[in-house]
């Protein structure tokens, strides 16, 4: 049985930037516990001798020539912006520093 706690879920929600309600956290704590218990079985067969596969097709060295292609127009780029100021996207004050 995995030991997923509500604190852990709250931390994950913070990492994932989702403002979950306490009810959602409680429900997800239970569900996540069940799911994690069920998926943890992957460790049974994932022995050190087995290489990991990140891509289904084994390609390497897929490159693009360093040639400029037309960008979107500024209006296209900003067409979906929830808020803008001139040609820039506008966001509320930022609390965290870079």
């Amino acid at each position: 049985m995995s030991e997923i706690t509500a604190e852990q879920v709250a931390h994950l929600a913070n990492l994932a930037r989702i403002d979950l309600s306490s009810e959602e956290i409680a429900r997800l704590t239970t569900e996540l516990g069940q799911i994690v218990d069920s998926v943890a079985k992957v460790a049974e067969v994932a022995t050190p001798d087995v290489p990991a596969t990140s891509h289904p097709m084994p390609l390497t060295n897929v490159f693009r020539a360093d040639t400029v292609v037309p960008s979107l127009t500024v209006e296209q780029a900003l067409s979906g912006a929830p808020d803008r100021d001139g040609d820039k996207f506008r966001v509320p004050a930022i609390l965290d520093e870079e």
Partner: peptide, 11 residues
């Protein structure tokens, strides 16, 4: 950044 009212982004 401290005390700013809002910020603008140019990508």
């Amino acid at each position: 950044i401290q005390g700013a009212d809002y910020s603008l982004v140019d990508y």
